[in-house]
Design a protein around this nucleic acid. Structure first.
Lengths: 224, 224
DNA sequence: TTGACAATCGTACAGCGTACGTCCATAGTA
DNA sequence: TACTATGGACGTACGCTGTACGATTGTCAA
């Protein structure tokens, strides 16, 4: 056997589906999903465009795999605590992950077949709810409600044109308010002013609604 | 003045921004947002691709206008009833509209500047909450919570690979269950079986979570 | 040495958004 | 009636895209 490495031209070691998909996620994080092309992805990996098709059957499959990587990053509900703490943990984790990969939210609408990490995640959440005493159909309801809140919040957060409280203040003064004549939009004006004054933190906002939902679900379980 | 119409070659009367955007929405409904290209849209209107650019500055602007048409279709909260009924009406309407235009959900993530119909809608919802007695910041919280639920539900619904209870039963038996070994996914198996047995109606599922959220918000308003 | 095989590549094609320049029916003016 | 200005529609072109196809390469079994 020769002392030579198998192959190694431009950037790194050999390709693999893992490496391809992981780099695709990085690229989408940086440039958005519209900036992700097979050529750009390939050149980020130091390869030719067609080489990618040995690891991924099509761009569609690549996108599916990217979504599943995102689900892999979301913390599963821990088993050792009460159900509310467990669901809060995983919901907070989901929001964080989706905030890091905003393209994933928009992608979900068009991808209908769940990947393995997605399935593992759903299984763990359902298990948590069932063990907490929710009847089968009630666990389904709770699942829908919680997931709707998490995804919807992430979707709204992704479409905000600012990231920090300072940026919010700037944009409110220079962009929003000029577009909102006070006589036509009195309540939005009031609301914008109050929001700037109070400061705005998406993490806090998220927790508020989440705890409200969790508390509302509590009486629906048949406590052991 | 001549008896001759101004212009009329292939399909209809003259173009206009309204007609262009409305046809774009129809096309996206039929073929998804990926199937919407300037050429296909133009040919659906009996025009050349470049003619569209007289009414829309770019495809981005077209997409923004499409989103705003969707918001125009959503019923505003009626003023004559109690706040819960009003919010339920507009939430149900929003779900229906988004179910008809699933591409809109995925689009929102990338479009950060709200159109006029969007602003009118937000103003009306905020007004309804404020008049019901919610303090300013509490109205903001309620807004976030309700919108998160509506958008998130629509997002999940759009990513379901079936539309009717029958299709669910078919797909569960022939697609899902074969992918879900009972020892690895006991709870998902149980849940799928119960769901097929109970029948599934997204409208009912939506109302369940919605009413739960509305009831949870009730004590947070300073009732007059 | 030969052959099989998987990984990688260059090339090609149709379709995309859109910049640019041209055409022509109409409106306004003389 | 003749002339010009205007603005909507269009054809062409450029640089992208996803990916089908065939050729090239490195590696290993027989």
């Amino acid at each position: 056997m020769s002392a030579r490495e198998p192959r190694q031209i431009a950037s790194d070691a050999g390709l693999s589906k893992q490496r391809v998909v992981a780099e695709a996620v990085r690229l989408a994080d940086r440039e958005g999903v519209d900036g992700l092309s097979m050529r750009r992805l390939a050149s980020a990996l130091g390869a030719g465009a067609m080489s990618l098709y040995h690891y991924v059957a099509s761009k569609e499959e690549l996108l599916d795999a990217m979504i599943d990587i995102v689900f892999e990053e979301i913390e599963l509900p821990p088993e050792e605590t009460d159900w509310q703490s467990a669901m809060r943990r995983r919901a907070v984790s989901a929001r964080q992950v989706l905030a890091h990969h905003p393209w994933a939210i928009g992608l979900m609408e068009s991808r209908t077949s769940p990947g393995p990490a997605n399935l593992r995640h759903r299984e763990a959440v359902t298990a948590c709810l069932r063990r907490a005493g929710f009847p089968v159909l009630m666990a389904t309801h709770a699942n829908w409600l919680l997931d709707s809140y998490v995804y919807g919040f992430a979707l709204q957060e992704a479409s905000l044109p600012f990231d920090t409280a300072d940026e919010l203040a700037d944009m409110t003064e220079n962009v929003f308010l000029p577009q909102l004549p006070p006589d036509e939009f009195p309540y939005l004006n009031e609301s914008a002013a109050a929001l700037v004054a109070a400061g705005y933190d998406p993490a806090e906002e998220f927790i508020f609604g989440l705890d409200l939902v969790l508390a509302a679900l509590e009486p629906l379980r048949a406590s052991a």
